[in-house]
């Protein structure tokens, strides 16, 4: 019986990650779900948030947005439009995006695309949270 499961994260621009891991926790659209090796086949849309995996007792974080995950007993494939490992997250940019979104939410109330602003804000906040999680777990250099 396999003790590890392969995690593969792919975006349109590149393969972000391919690793043998012990556990994967992903932000499903209906709430977070966890995957251990030998999980039954499963397909889920993902929300915006942090995906994490455990390897040798350590937790590693990856920010994902706009994707879905295909789970088979030996492999988890995540297809996301955006995926960034915690250490690759541009905090400065996330902060700017947050400011911009909040500013926009305050201005011109009528012709505002609320969904887009909300999504932008959520992305910025989750990016920062993802990084903070990784730092507190000690799996990411500051």
């Amino acid at each position: 019986m396999a003790k590890t499961i392969t995690l593969e994260i792919v975006t349109p621009d590149k393969m972000v990650l391919k690793e043998e891991v012990d556990y994967v926790g992903a932000p499903g659209i209906n709430g977070e779900f966890g995957v251990l090796p030998n999980h039954i086949p499963f397909l889920s849309a993902l929300g915006i948030g942090s995906l994490y995996y455990k390897l040798n007792g350590k937790k590693y974080f990856v920010f994902v947005a706009g994707g879905f995950a295909e789970v088979s007993p030996a492999k988890v494939t995540v297809l996301a439009e955006v995926a960034e490992k915690a250490e690759d997250i541009d905090l400065e940019r996330a902060r700017r995006a947050q400011d911009r979104a909040e500013q926009r939410a305050r201005q011109q109330q009528e012709k505002l695309d609320h969904a887009a602003v909300q999504a932008a804000l959520a992305r910025a906040l989750h990016r920062m949270k993802c990084r903070a999680n990784a730092v507190s777990e000690g799996t990411c250099r500051m």
């Binding site: 659209i29 499963f42 849309a45 879905f68 088979s72």
Partner: peptide, 17 residues
């Protein structure tokens, strides 16, 4: 792959995909 569990549902996923 006929024994997939789908979340939220086949239709919901299609709408996303």
């Amino acid at each position: 792959s006929s024994e997939y569990i789908f979340e939220p549902s086949v239709e919901g996923l299609l709408a996303e995909l």
